[in-house]
């Protein structure tokens, strides 16, 4: 049964991340996703210090707040300060992440989060969690519940907000011209990324969550040129990596999270070589 929970956790996290990642890479904001995944750390610690528990809701609020602050600071340094976009990203997230690390070490005795866990996560712990039942007949570890609810919210956001996300991603100035607020959609997406990052964090850690955000979306981008297909493929790529990664980790007796990210890398390489439209080998054969 522990295999099942670990794989399911991986699937839920990678589907949420993969879906959001599609919009991130199409907005040329992949590194903003990276930044957010690190910069939410002080938010989590502060939320913990205030609420005194590892309860998900205050943490999500703390994380979402810092995700939005990160996005805002990046825009501020870029637009008002005239600093390059990548430099703005670099300064913002390292600084916020550092504050988070200091907060953890200051309150290390009280806080149940340790730095290794933040950086690398430990997906295998999910199997040790007690099962909770919110719906009669269904019981699962609370991490799985939280990831599941977040995934449903993200799928709902993409289904109902599809036109808004599509329009503001493809042509923001046209969107603004027809009276659609690009700022609202931007921050909605960034909040979703922050929340998803945090709930995936515990399992895969701050570094590998970036792999979940970017690799499935990048792989899907190479395979298809239709956005709805890209979203589905990104989710599938994540699911395959969760299964493959788990068994690879068992076989090698290695970290599950790292194995998942490695499988993502392999999937990307395969798409890069053999994708029907952009694969370099396919292109060569066609010539």
């Amino acid at each position: 049964m522990s295999d099942f929970w670990i794989i399911l956790t991986g699937c839920l996290a990678s589907v949420s991340c993969g879906l959001l990642g599609c919009f991130l890479i199409l907005r040329q904001m992949a590194m903003v996703g990276d930044a957010i995944s690190h910069a939410v750390l002080p938010g989590i610690v502060i939320a913990f210090l205030f609420s005194g528990s590892l309860d998900s809701v205050p943490m999500l609020i703390g994380a979402a707040t810092f995700g939005v602050i990160t996005t805002y600071l990046i825009e501020l340094f870029n637009k008002k300060g005239g600093l390059q976009k990548d430099a703005s990203i670099g300064i913002t997230f390292t600084w916020l992440f550092a504050i988070g690390v200091i907060l953890i070490s200051l309150y290390a005795d009280d806080v149940h989060i340790d730095q290794d866990c933040v950086l690398f996560g430990e997906i295998a712990y999910v199997a040790l969690e007690p099962l909770v039942s919110y719906i009669p007949g269904l019981s699962a570890p609370s991490t799985v519940w939280v990831l599941f609810i977040v995934m449903l919210l993200i799928i709902a956001m993409i289904i109902f907000g599809y036109k808004g996300l599509f329009l503001t991603t493809f042509d923001p100035s046209f969107a603004a011209a027809i009276g659609v607020s690009t700022v609202v959609w931007h921050y909605l997406l960034m909040s979703a990324v922050s929340v998803t990052t945090v709930v995936s964090f515990e399992s895969v850690g701050a570094i590998l969550v970036v792999a979940l955000l970017i690799a499935p979306a990048a792989t899907a981008y190479l395979i298809t040129d239709k956005l709805p297909k890209m979203l589905v493929i990104a989710a599938l790529v994540g699911v395959i990596a969760s299964f493959g990664g788990y068994y690879l980790a068992v076989w090698l007796d290695a970290s599950v999270a790292a194995a998942i990210a490695s499988v993502l890398g392999i999937e990307f390489t395969l798409a890069f070589l053999f994708s029907p439209q952009d694969g370099i080998i396919i292109k060569r054969l066609r010539r």
């Binding site: 991603t169 981008y221 040129d225 239709k226």
Partner: peptide, 19 residues
């Protein structure tokens, strides 16, 4: 705009109806 965006011509023209 980025013309490598995964969208069809019809998708783009339909944006004209969004307003």
């Amino acid at each position: 705009v980025d013309w490598d965006f995964p969208a069809s011509v019809l998708d783009v023209v339909l944006m004209g109806r969004y307003g």
